[in-house]
Design a protein around this nucleic acid. Sequence first.
DNA 1: CGTATATTTCGTCCAGGTTTGAAATATGGA
DNA 2: TCCATATTTCAAACCTGGACGAAATATACG
Lengths: 119, 119
Amino acid sequence: MELKTAISSLSALAHEGRLATFRMLVQAGPDGLAAGEIARRLEAAPNSLSANLKVLSHAGLICSRREGRSIIYSAEYDQMSRLLGYLMEDCCNGAPEICAPLADVLARTACCVPASVNA
Amino acid sequence: MELKTAISSLSALAHEGRLATFRMLVQAGPDGLAAGEIARRLEAAPNSLSANLKVLSHAGLICSRREGRSIIYSAEYDQMSRLLGYLMEDCCNGAPEICAPLADVLARTACCVPASVNA
DNA sequence: CGTATATTTCGTCCAGGTTTGAAATATGGA
DNA sequence: TCCATATTTCAAACCTGGACGAAATATACG
């Protein structure tokens, strides 16, 4: 990932409404949620939410598809992965014990890391 | 981590100079770097850099200590861990196969994840 | 076709972050 | 004490991002 791309993603997430939206979509899974449903849950104005979804979308963090009258948004897990990877790149170069707690936290929160890591 | 804290961290990182600074410190390890050294490497104005270091510091992403005439900054790996954990929280709830690529990327970039994960 | 629903677009206004230059503070050494 | 180095603070100008209301677009249904 390039610096500019990372900035774009981080900027998109550095906003209360957008971060809440993104996390909601991350937790919702690939089925995603309709814009209206997100607006209801967040009690956000439709036009404000629309603008925020556009920002997240432009950053590549979410994608959309039409379904009838609704537009369904869902998280782009790949882009999220790339962003996290970018932040961790070359961390504690050559000194694993330094960022051990980092690995620890990730192991606990990553739902899909092999169980062996937690051992 | 709370929403506000995450916003604060993400906002701090959503800036070209600050992201570059943070990554430099992450890669520098716990010994850190002097403000002047960072300014030289980034070709940044001392006062601008100072303001940016303050933002990162206030977000808890870096910390500082004085050493003679210099002030040494270093990354706070714990806060970084908490931020990444917050973003991944409850991801793909109950459907590991969905965010498998996420685990994959993390396994490759995390320098301190046990080798077994890469197998 | 006309109406209701769902979402986006547009224009305006305001708040907050960023840059820059000058001045201030802190430390070390002669 | 005086000066040089290292970093921060301050104040002003600048610019971008976000909120809000109104209008426009797209789809579904009778």
